[in-house]
Amino acid sequence: MGDGEKRTVFVTGGTTCFDALVQAVDSERVKEALLQKGYTHLLIQMGRGTYAPSKVTGNSTLQVDYFTFSPSIADYIREASLVISHAGSGSIFETLRLSKPLIVVVNEDLMDNHQSELAEELAERKHLFCARPQTLQETIQAMDLTTLQPYVPGDAKPVVTLINKFLGFPGE
């Protein structure tokens, strides 16, 4: 990493309110962990949340900015060196499709949280790291990006062939 190289962490809370995530990334402990990993910028998409992060950081040099919504977050993900995301499947798979390192933070306030199952399964397969708001700092400190495995979407052709056969359509 050369001096002055911009390394951005993009945080997305989705379209709902996930203030616990925004508060976690806004903490001095998490910002310090990001700095120690060599990140220079923190850009937070906070959705409907009401907690406004501080653009001023203690003794750090981490540049912080935030916004509520954008028509598309794909460009922010594309430009990021690391993505920290809520556990929504759209954000997860868009980030994985763009081959960006990802920490998924599970919102424990959601009832019937199927999102945590998806995040934990993908973490077990080494496609991403999984955290809770209160464990985010430790996850950042412990993460080794070289251990991540690329996500390769499944091939739908065998399923299509089986459905076509079941429906009586001729095979190829």
Rank of each mutant, 00 (worst) to 15 (best):
C130S: 12
D75Y: 03
A52N: 15
K126P: 00
I92R: 06
L98I: 07
A156L: 14
S91Q: 06
I84R: 01
E120G: 03
T50L: 12
Y151E: 01
F129A: 03
R132D: 00
P133G: 07
P101N: 10
S116W: 11
R97H: 14
G154L: 08
I77A: 02
S54L: 09
G90M: 06
H86Y: 14
G58C: 07
E94W: 03
A52K: 13
A87D: 02
R48F: 06
R125C: 04
L96K: 03
V83Q: 01
V83M: 05
Y76V: 01
T61A: 11
P133Q: 12
F93A: 05
T57D: 11
E124A: 13
F67Y: 11
T95V: 11
L122H: 02
L148Y: 08
L145E: 12
A156I: 14
A131H: 00
Q134L: 07
E94L: 09
A119C: 05
Y151L: 01
A87C: 11
L128M: 14
S99G: 11
S116Q: 15
V105F: 02
I73N: 13
D75I: 04
T146V: 08
C130D: 00
K126S: 08
D155L: 06
T95F: 01
H41P: 03
A80V: 07
K100F: 05
G90V: 04
L82Y: 08
D144H: 07
E108S: 12
V105L: 12
M111T: 07
P71C: 05
I140Y: 02
Q115A: 04
L43H: 10
I140F: 03
I140A: 01
T50S: 15
P53W: 12
C130N: 06
Q137G: 06
S116N: 10
S85M: 07
L43A: 12
Y39E: 02
D109E: 14
M143V: 02
I92S: 03
L62C: 09
A156Y: 08
Y39D: 02
V105K: 04
G88P: 06
K126N: 11
V105P: 09
V56M: 11
F93E: 04
V160W: 09
A52L: 15
G154P: 05
S89H: 13
E120L: 09
K37V: 00
I163Y: 13
K55R: 15
D144E: 15
N113K: 06
Y51F: 15
G49V: 09
V104T: 13
Y66N: 10
A119D: 06
P150M: 03
Y66F: 14
S116L: 09
L128N: 04
I77Q: 04
K126C: 07
T139P: 00
S91L: 05
